[in-house]
Amino acid sequence: MTNEELQAYLTGEFPKAEVTLGKQYVEMIVKSEDLVETSIKLKGMPQLSMDYLFCLTGVDYPEKMQIVYHLESTKHRHVLVMKCDTADRVDPKVDSVREIWRTAKYHEREVYDLMGVHFNNHDDLRRLFLEDGWGFPLRKDYKDEVRIVER
């Protein structure tokens, strides 16, 4: 599907989500309570079959924490950027999608490690790179007087 077709299809299929046409890819913002349900549909529906999660990351905006999923269908070769916002910046909680895309398990661990996003139902949510009690360096309010030299 082309981006426009995909946008039209997704708008019809997920009325609760907000589907826009971005500069490169179709973007879809889902509510955090619909995340797992939407994900299962995205992967399972034969017209979509978004089976390849190639990037999972988080972005710390001033008022929200956003988890970004880059999805591709290996069958139809269309790409979708799914986003999930959490209003709680201090202790954000998102459902885990590791059962749907298995690679998400470690990507979620990375996001937890660097941004402090808790993924519900994740079986092994430990820090990946850093030590325990380090803080979450990719948050914008992260301060480290010793290691970061401001210019």
Binding site: F54, C55, T57, V59, D60, H70, Y106, H107, E110, L138
Partner: peptide
């Protein structure tokens, strides 16, 4: 504002 590198080795 934010940069993320999707590295092949990680997956």
């Amino acid at each position: 504002y934010r940069v993320k590198f999707r590295s092949p080795g990680f997956s």
